[in-house]
Design a protein around this nucleic acid. Structure first.
Length: 283
DNA sequence: CGGTTACCCTGGATGC
DNA sequence: TGCATCCAGGGTAACC
């Protein structure tokens, strides 16, 4: 479910309600979600501490507690999400943050239970953990840095963009949208883009993500919702993802859906006219 | 080492 | 209706 725009939307929704509040009780309904530190251990450290800030790094949510409380890091992965209102499916609730404020509790729900919860002693340790599995955030990365990182892999440009160690935040939906905007075929080799193509690619990332954030992310089926239970609107205005058979907004060619090697079980959508794999030789 | 796949999970949609 | 199969916003361990 959540890629960068969805997680950013969650964080923006959580901040005004959660920041400055004491985390009275950290109720753990599903201890399977925890990593190095057990649920009990985390409870001991975070309960009765003030939540100072809520931040996003790539697709991760960071709850920074007052000194001594460390940092709770939640990776929603495919189906994790936060609810300020009672969740649609209360049986999918995995955590409950009990607070003092007018919003008494914040639910964390995760249908498929693929999400993970970790805890780190302080900001420094959190930073290290983030850097170990994530590259620069997609909203922050510079053109040169992106180009340098793409030069280091011979994979297709789409799997490279989805690799969180290359840059953090893009997933299946927004990789498709960024590549369409930059007019690049998803199977182009990441290390063989021209300078112009590198520039076009970098220039496409921010506008796509910002438009998606403005729309509060992408919802379909029973998946992602905002913290208030609302659907994100981006898939009503996007270019290619989940639009197989529709006309390309740029050239009118029909959007296709393919499964590319290296991306198991994840469909790719693109415009075969705008996003050509090979240059057509003119004669 | 880098690239690819197998697998972790569950529920809704689709097909027979 | 009932049951099997497929599908899905992610990430990582294990394999070649």
């Amino acid at each position: 479910m959540p890629e960068l725009p969805e997680v950013e939307t969650m964080v923006r929704g959580l901040r005004p309600v959660v920041c400055g509040q004491i985390l009275r009780r950290f109720e753990v309904l599903d201890p399977l979600l925890f990593g190095d530190h057990s649920a009990e251990e985390v409870k001991d450290r975070v309960e009765c501490r003030k939540i100072q800030r809520v931040e996003r790094r790539g697709k991760w949510v960071l709850f920074e507690l007052e000194p001594g409380g460390g940092v709770i890091v939640i990776q929603p992965r495919m189906t994790g999400g936060f609810w300020l209102v009672a969740p649609q499916r209360e049986d999918h609730a995995r955590l409950i943050f009990h607070l003092d404020g007018s919003t008494k509790q914040v639910w964390y729900c995760d249908t498929r239970r693929l999400g993970r919860v970790s805890w780190h002693e302080d900001l420094e340790a959190t930073e290290l953990a983030c850097d170990r599995s994530q590259g620069p955030d997609a909203l922050v990365i510079g053109e040169r840095e992106l180009a340098d990182r793409l030069k280091r892999t011979s994979r297709g440009i789409k799997p490279a963009l989805m690799d969180q160690k290359v840059l953090a935040g893009l997933g299946n939906i927004y990789a498709d949208e960024v590549l369409w905007r930059a007019s690049l075929h998803p199977s182009r080799r990441a290390d063989r883009l021209s300078l112009l193509e590198q520039q076009a690619l970098h220039a496409a990332i921010r506008p796509v993500l910002e438009q998606a954030i403005a729309a509060e992310g992408s919802s379909f089926d029973a998946g992602y919702r905002t913290v208030l239970g609302l659907e994100g609107g981006f898939l009503a205005e996007n270019a290619v993802h989940r639009r197989a058979g529709e006309a390309c907004k740029r050239c009118g060619e029909l959007i296709v859906k393919v499964y590319m090697p290296g991306l198991i079980g994840r469909p790719t959508y693109f415009c075969p006219w705008c996003q050509k794999l090979k240059r057509v030789r003119s004669r």
